[in-house]
Design a protein around this nucleic acid. Structure first.
Length: 554
RNA sequence: GGCCCGUUGGAGAAGCGGUUAACUCAUAUCCCUUUCAAGGAUACAUUCACGCGUUCGAACCGCGUACGGGUCACCA
């Protein structure tokens, strides 16, 4: 009578290693008590998803705060969906957010003692474990074709029972070893399935590090663990890899909760200690009144690259995501006047169970706060490197005169309440382009937004006067009283109160005077502090601009 | 459909048997002000999806209903 041993050898003749060998090759990590080993395990199928960044932030924080390890493993077992170069892109985007794993797969090569960190390179490990499972009778080759499986599913539908490969529906589960050997020798294609001992009537419980105790039906389906292409399925690869890589906590999306019994079943069959699980909620979006997961296809904000391109400071997105993860983080930032994520006492227990709606307004708020507080030099570097990558024309402007741009960036920055009008780097240029002569001239070539009620000759004369009498290099109050005097010469009120009390005796208010000069200088009724702008523009340019507009108005 | 998970204001949420139901964003109004961005002040859930129950007392405990999310692949 043929044995499982023979079957195992027939299936995997080249596998000579044993599980014991693997245990020895990947010894348990020498980490202090409580240190957590977490991981980022993406499939290289595209760009970094906002939800993945969210999970990564949590995993990374857990590892760092516990003095553990955060590593990267590439889950590239779905060869059809794998996109060339995507793995490297994922890691580099993660790095742009300042999340630097301390081990694992990197574009520049693997780092660490638990590799390879790419599943497609771990075939021999999976085969070793599966061979052992077959020996023990806990895995078997299955010969069903997709059509067979389809038939089974239809039968289940008709019988109104649960779909799946289990019990009497597991067609090849109880084949004899001889029958299996015969089919294999006859060249019938096969996959390997895990042989579950589970009972669907029973429950399996586990404690989730975020949600607490979760009770689910026991797994009783014989899931595929090795596909016909020789690569493992997620379920098996997860169990195998996280065991040998000595992961202590699996942080993954909540969509994995229902399949956790499968994983626990396999850990049990292998006699391995299961890691802790922390199932993190999805980031959601409101779609016609219904919540749904952020979708890479429908929502631009689902791809982290969207924020990078727009020029959101990467740190701001992280801070926003942290405020979703632990809502007390916001209060903490206010109390500590700091957005330092590494100093915040993060807690898995404080993560709420239902997915938060992505809130762009709140992201903007954090981004504005952070940008406003960023020291000038640092902000300058950040804006410049963003421009180099995403806005070439802007980058060239900055290069043309870095000191000039720095002054512009510094407007109303050195104050107790710094200016907060940029949420992202791409907001900057449109607001300050008037500083550049060619842009200014383009603005002046179309009608300027002067108020209709003022006579053009009056405006022209006032500007002509201002061009010669406005002072430079003086402090703001001095400058402003000069503006008042200029206005008064042309019949404007010297204060808004005067104007309010007696509007008929003036041609306009003090605000109007300021507005006329502002429009002439910046081409718009709105701008940051005019005095600072004038000082940056310099006397020569201001005189030029006022004379130019004065001439146009004639 | 089965099984899980969830439901406190427009958003994120605190609350864990007795509170005026925190806080932050958003929104609105007012103040400040040479415009804007800020800043300051005020307003914004008589009520915690709904129903029933337990209790002197419920957003908090129990049951049921409704709604929302997730999952049931040789994808992860």
């Amino acid at each position: 009578m043929a044995t499982n041993e023979e079957l195992a050898n027939l299936l995997f003749p080249d596998v000579t290693e044993t599980i014991e060998d693997l245990e020895a090759r990947y010894p348990s990590r020498n980490l202090p008590e409580g240190a957590q080993v977490t991981r980022f395990a993406p499939s290289p199928t595209g760009f970094l998803h906002t939800g993945s960044l969210f999970t990564s932030l949590i995993s990374y924080t857990v590892a760092r705060n516990s003095g553990g390890v955060y590593y990267v493993r590439l889950e590239d077992t779905d060869t059809k969906r794998t996109i060339e170069g995507s793995g490297d892109l994922l890691i580099s985007q993660l790095r742009e957010f300042g999340i630097e794993p301390n081990e694992g797969y990197f574009p520049e090569g693997d780092k660490g003692d638990y590799g390879p960190y790419k599943q497609s390179e771990r075939r021999s490990i999976y085969r070793t474990v599966i061979k052992e499972l077959i020996r023990r009778g806990r895995a078997y080759p299955d010969f069903c074709t997709p059509e067979d499986l389809d038939r089974i599913r239809k039968a289940q539908e008709a019988a109104k029972v649960l779909p799946g490969y289990y019990g009497v529906y597991a067609r090849d589960r109880n084949l004899s070893v001889e029958e299996r050997i015969e089919k294999i020798n006859a060249g019938v294609p096969w996959v390997i399935r895990f042989k579950s001992n589970g009972d669907h009537e029973k429950k399996t419980k586990f404690v989730d590090a975020i949600r607490g105790e979760i009770e689910l039906q026991d797994n009783d389906t014989d899931v595929v663990i090795l596909k016909s292409d020789g690569l493992p399925t997620y379920h098996f690869a997860h169990v195998c890899d996280d065991h040998f890589m000595r992961t202590t906590m699996i942080t993954r999306g909540e969509e994995w909760i229902p399949s956790t019994p499968i994983h626990l079943d396999m850990f049990r069959a292998l006699g391995w200690k299961a890691p802790k699980y922390a199932h993190v909620p999805s980031v959601m979006k409101l779609d016609y009144g219904n919540k749904r997961k952020l979708s890479k296809r429908k929502d631009p904000e689902a791809a982290v690259s969207y924020f990078l391109e727009q020029g959101y400071p990467p740190e701001a997105l992280k801070v926003y995501l942290m405020s979703i993860a632990n809502s007390n983080f916001e209060e903490w930032t206010i109390a500590h006047k700091s957005f330092d994520l590494s100093a915040f006492p993060f807690s898995l227990k404080k993560i709420s169970f239902d997915g938060a709606l992505f809130d762009q307004d709140k992201l903007n708020y954090f981004a504005k706060e952070m940008l406003a507080r960023e020291p000038l030099e640092q902000e300058f570097e950040a804006v410049y490197s963003w421009a180099k990558a995403h806005d070439e024309a802007f980058a060239r402007r900055i290069e043309g005169n870095p000191e000039y741009f720095k002054k512009i960036l510094n407007i109303e920055k050195d104050r107790k309440n710094p200016r907060k009008d940029y949420a992202k780097y791409s907001d900057i240029y449109p607001l300050i382009k008037f500083f550049y002569q060619d842009e200014y001239e383009a603005m002046v070539s179309s009608p300027l937004p002067f108020q209709e009620k003022f006579d053009r000759a009056l405006l022209s004369n006032l500007l002509k006067d201002a061009a010669t009498s406005m002072p430079y290099g003086v402090d703001e109050p001095t400058w402003f009283s000069a503006i008042k005097e200029i206005g008064a010469k042309f019949g404007f009120a010297a204060s808004n109160k005067d104007y309010k009390n007696n509007p008929d005796s003036f041609v306009g208010s003090l605000s109007d005077v300021a507005e006329i000069i502002r429009v002439a200088l910046v081409g718009s009724t709105q701008s940051p502090n005019l005095h600072e702008i004038i000082e940056i523009l310099g006397k020569e340019e201001c005189v030029r601009r006022m004379n130019l507009v004065s001439a146009i108005l004639k």
